[in-house]
Design a protein around this nucleic acid. Structure first.
Lengths: 151, 151
DNA sequence: TCGGATAACATGGGACCCCATGGGCGTCAA
DNA sequence: TTGACGCCCATGGGGTCCCATGTTATCCGA
């Protein structure tokens, strides 16, 4: 598997550590990158996570902006300034910064949601709400247009 | 890690010294450059810092401007004329000039913000405000233009 | 088809190491 | 001489590494 699929619920251990799902670790390893690149999502109360491919995407985006311009600084601050490289221990766990846990409201348990090229970390009840909304939206689109959008 | 990522809050010690984050020191060392190149940022109340790669970028920027032109003189004065080479002690600390501390309003505590090719040093509360603004700006640009920032 | 063995994985805990910070001392310049 | 600066060592806490345990899924043989 070379992309992030399905979703998994894990708990925070006594030291605030949490296990990255094994399936996601395998996908990360394929990218030749030890560690997880993570930052608070801009749109959702969640963390966006990925390997160096995700980081390369952001680099590419920044490269399109002129150096020393305010726009580039804003992007760099928002995307790189809030991001972290999470190191995994030998068991595949990471330690989430308080800052990273605060925005998504993570505490106790978390849901890892595959999104293909990246994955997100959610607080369980917030994810359930988001999932319901997404499914309702898909139903609405399908019934309205008769288009067979895959759920 | 070959670029500046994440952000860290450090305090000024009794002698006015402050530690460069270890992750940033590693990135600097990869550039084969001991010491930190620093100058007051053009757009923000902060210090722009980096290794010789940053210096090379500035050189490249200046090279695009016609020699002896007012624009080139202005850039050279603003970027090079106000810059300093900060020496690190064996523990990775630097001593900030009063002039460098004045513009960003640095005192007591400072936040080191990775921006990929360079990093910035901020006064904490000012950075918090700037970060909010930057995230709002990125959201706006992305939703407005459909620019392909990863969500 | 059922049951036991085995492997993979999530989680707990202890120990060590790195890093941020404090402080002392020597050196050089004003 | 005195203050500023650079170099050295000390220290405490947080992070990382390593080992241990239980549980679940998988596989294989009866």
């Amino acid at each position: 598997m070379d992309c992030f699929l399905s979703h998994f619920a894990h708990r925070f251990g006594a030291k605030g550590r949490i296990s990255i799902p094994a399936a996601f670790r395998q996908a990360l390893a394929k990218g030749g990158f030890e560690g997880v690149y993570a930052y608070p999502s801009l749109d959702a109360p969640a963390l966006d996570c990925g390997g160096h491919k995700l980081l390369a995407e952001i680099d590419a985006l920044l490269a399109t902006l002129p150096p020393f311009s305010p726009a580039r600084d804003a992007f760099a601050t928002a995307l790189l300034g809030t991001s972290e490289i999470l190191r995994m221990d030998s068991e595949g766990r990471v330690l989430l910064d308080d800052r990273l846990k605060a925005a998504p409201g993570l505490e106790g348990e978390a849901v890892f949601v595959g999104q293909g090229h990246k994955f997100q970390i959610w607080e369980p009840s917030r994810f359930a709400a988001r999932l319901d909304a997404a499914r309702a939206r898909v139903r609405l689109l399908r019934s309205g247009q008769g288009a067979g959008a895959p759920a």
